[in-house]
């Protein structure tokens, strides 16, 4: 599954970042790394973008970008 599929309040552990080039580097620079825990926090009123918590801070990204981030759900 990928990050965009999480429901609010659900958590996951990143297994793979599918993006390449600048998008991948940008995600990594923002702390989106393999092995990192990420929590879906909010979805914008119009359904996109989303807000997640990673490394103790709030990060927003579009669903299309979140689809590149593979993870396994944490119960």
């Amino acid at each position: 599954m990928n990050l965009s599929m999480l429901k609010c309040g659900e958590k996951g552990k990143i297994t793979k970042i599918g993006a390449i080039g600048p998008l991948k580097r940008r995600l990594m620079d923002m702390g989106v790394l393999v092995g990192e825990e990420v929590k879906m926090e909010k979805v914008a009123p119009l359904g996109d973008p989303i807000e997640v918590i990673i490394k103790n801070y709030k990060l927003s990204l579009r669903k299309k970008e979140a689809e590149e981030i593979q993870l396994e759900a944490i119960k």
């Binding site: 940008r26 927003s60 970008e65």
Partner: peptide, 8 residues
């Protein structure tokens, strides 16, 4: 352009 942004 991407939309990867901190919500400070």
């Amino acid at each position: 352009p991407m939309f990867i942004m901190e919500l400070p």
